[in-house]
Design a binder for these strands. Structure first.
Lengths: 195, 195
DNA sequence: TCTTATTCATACACTGTGTATGTATTATCA
DNA sequence: TGATAATACATACACAGTGTATGAATAAGA
């Protein structure tokens, strides 16, 4: 295979990342061999180890990419809300729906935690951090009762992730999603200063 | 090595389970080789594959054992509470503290989810199921607002697990634990019928 | 154009899983 | 009790997968 321009080379990295997202979300990180993965991208392991160091390094970059995309998508939703509290709630709902997507559920919520570490290890921190900032705002505006925003963000983030698994488990269309959102709203209303 | 009584044989299984709990929680499931594990138990892989089928089978049994123990410990706490709501809250607090224990955090919350599947796959279901029953009671007693108890149990269970990671991350003694419990109580009060 | 740095492929060494096989001990039943 | 079947392990092997070392081809810079 003849390599021409500089762009072709940078494309290699992007191709590997895209293939990894696809294969990881289909078969999972542990069940994916780097031979198969690179073959699907019409490359060899040489390219992969050159660009990412090792298998874990590839996963780290995949997680970073997905996390950044999620954060972007969530920002859009928050920005179009009528007020801070409404934006916060809608962001939670949106996160719950996004967590149903196979790619996010398998790579971010399942494999990344086990392979990369416990509490969102540097990567996948965008989303939690964004939520923490939102909470801080709400506390300053005296909408939400004063509390540690990191603790609260962790609690909410975790609840959404676990609920997403439960929703995805069921095959009853949107029923579980609606029930999840309803239960979530019960929890969230506890945060309000004015009940 | 000469094998004598029937009890000696049943002990083999127990020894392997105990060793697995120890080694899995120290190094993690993926980083543990079955050669090392069995050697630590003064056995060989033959014994392991005979009793548990494969590596994953061993993890399943380990998870079952730990989950049952957790549920037992939590039952004690719930039973000594003054009323149902108090018992529920104390159970949540207790779960949060238990989730800080390295063995539970590493094996149940990290590795088991990735290896065994998304939403607590049959095993590790005791705890969530117990919580669901508690919630159902509270709803029937008109203490908690009517909602889907499975959804709510998932949300709470997930929030506790994620918060536990955040707490364990910090090295500030009990500070994060207390902040976590405070934030949790904010969320939980939203469930009450009478605010 | 010559040199150096990148980019990737190929080949190899090593680790780890799972399975097949063999052996010793225990249970079953005549 | 002795013979047979079943169980409980150990040993040996095949194979897949990771990571590394090496080398070739291309691009970048002087």
């Amino acid at each position: 295979m003849v390599r021409r321009t500089r762009a072709d080379m940078e494309e290699t990295r992007a191709t590997l990342l895209a293939t990894a997202r696809k294969v990881f979300s289909e078969r999972g990180y542990a069940n994916t061999s780097m031979d198969d993965l690179t073959a699907q991208a019409s490359l060899t392991r040489g390219a992969l180890y050159h660009h990412f160091g090792d298998k874990k390094g590839l996963l780290v970059e995949v997680v970073k990419q997905i996390d950044a995309e999620m954060d972007q998508r969530l920002q859009l939703i928050t920005n179009t809300a009528k007020d801070a509290w409404d934006g916060f709630r809608r962001r939670c709902h949106a996160y719950l729906e996004m967590a149903l997507e196979p790619e996010i559920q398998r790579i971010i919520l399942r494999d990344a935690r086990s392979v990369l570490g416990g509490a969102s290890p540097d990567s996948q921190h965008y989303c939690v951090e964004s939520m923490r900032l939102l909470i801080d705002n709400l506390i300053q505006q005296d909408v939400v009762t004063k509390t540690n925003s990191q603790a609260l963000a962790s609690l909410i983030y975790g609840s959404l992730a676990e609920a997403a698994f439960w929703i995805a488990e069921g095959d009853d269309g949107n029923e579980r999603l609606e029930q999840g959102i309803a239960a979530l709203d019960l929890l969230l209303r506890g945060l309000l200063v004015k009940q």
